[in-house]
């Protein structure tokens, strides 16, 4: 530890006093300044699973919403003579993608049997009405996503507003609002849907969205309320109050930004459950009705032919699974990225 001070070379002038005014800044911060968003993005990027999920979701959104611009096939155009054709990709000679089928143990070229020309190929095959399955999946995914996004947005608006008011007001107001939530969340979603189905003459997007939104916002409200209760006694909120800030402004400037992580994370889990609920309803037949398609109706249609033409159910099911997995994994990653304790 103790070096021998005699070995140190000292230059003349070394022991001149240092001018403190001109000296180094003693309040300096060396790290670059990151906004909260940048910080979260940086941590999210370093989480491989979450980031991969994010990329997959971006791609799926692009295909679902922009795919039709590239892949010009009408998802509703029926061509009965081309019904139930298996997938066929040009230049690929691999069972499952070459348009061949096994019928009673024999390998049959389904396209030839249907009398389709050389240039006819359906990348993911066709359904029982001869509609292009790829086009239908793209379309169905879009509808599913639209339903989920709109329902989630409604969830979010009602839930966050309700939660903030309940938590901020406290006391009797809070007590009453909590009872409302308890009652609502004790009703199963399915019951609401059946009620909706009878209320709306024809079930469709609107009724599904209504059903999901009516029952779904309570979780968001609960989380927001809990967080608001915690935040409202934080010193920075008290500081705003002592400065004379009004309650709505406090909610906007101080509460919302600090609730944003909870809201975003919860959204990440609400979307997939909305997608799944929609699929489930459509699958059991009280959801989207034809000619509209959603992942649920596609799976339901495909299931009828599952024994012979399993691809008709597999492809939409895979899309559904990937979508749900990606949202959930991204949600998990977001939770870590937003957690101040997982700093650095």
């Amino acid at each position: 530890m103790a070096d021998n001070p005699k070995d140190i070379a000292i230059k003349p002038g070394d022991f001149e006093p240092l001018d403190q005014q001109a000296g180094p800044d003693n309040e300096r911060i060396a790290a670059p300044s990151l906004t909260f968003g940048q910080d979260v993005w940086r941590r999210l990027k370093s989480n491989k699973t979450a980031f991969t999920s994010f990329i997959i979701l971006v791609l799926m959104f692009l295909v679902a919403f922009g795919g039709q611009a590239v892949y010009h096939h009408d998802p509703n155009a029926q061509q009965p003579k081309y019904a139930n054709l298996p997938p066929k990709i040009k230049g690929v000679d691999l069972y499952g993608f070459n348009g061949h089928l096994k019928q009673s143990g024999k390998d049959v070229d389904a396209y030839a049997a249907a009398g389709a020309g050389k240039d006819v190929h359906y990348v993911l095959g066709t359904d029982y009405l001869g509609r292009d399955l790829l086009a239908r999946i793209m379309y169905g995914t879009r509808i599913s996503l639209e339903i989920a996004l709109i329902a989630t947005l409604i969830d979010l608006t009602i839930g966050v507003g309700f939660g903030i008011i309940s938590g901020w007001k406290g006391g009797r107001v809070d007590l009453f609002m909590q009872r409302v939530i308890e009652i609502l969340s004790s009703i199963p979603q399915l019951v609401v849907m059946v009620l909706m189905a009878t209320a709306f003459t024809k079930t469709g997007m609107a009724s599904i969205i209504a059903a999901i939104a009516i029952t779904g916002w309570t979780t968001m409200a609960r989380l927001t309320r809990a967080q608001t209760l915690q935040l409202k006694n934080q010193d920075f909120i008290l500081a705003a109050r002592t400065l004379g800030e009004s309650a709505p402004k406090i909610a906007w400037k101080h509460l919302l930004p600090n609730l944003s992580s909870v809201i975003i994370i919860q959204t990440m889990f609400t979307i997939p459950s909305a997608i799944f609920f929609e699929a489930f309803l459509s699958y059991i037949g009280i959801g989207i009705s034809s000619p509209q398609a959603s992942l649920g109706t596609l799976i339901s249609d495909g299931q009828k032919n599952f024994q012979f033409l399993p691809y008709q159910m597999w492809y939409p099911a895979i899309v559904l699974i990937v979508l749900m997995l990606a949202f959930n994994l991204l949600g998990d990653g977001m939770r870590d990225a937003f957690d101040p304790k997982s700093k650095r």
């Binding site: 909260f36 934080q234 010193d235 920075f236 500081a239 101080h254 930004p257 600090n258 944003s260």
Partner: peptide
Amino acid sequence: YASLNPRM
């Protein structure tokens, strides 16, 4: 740590 809004 609690008296300054971390998002501002």
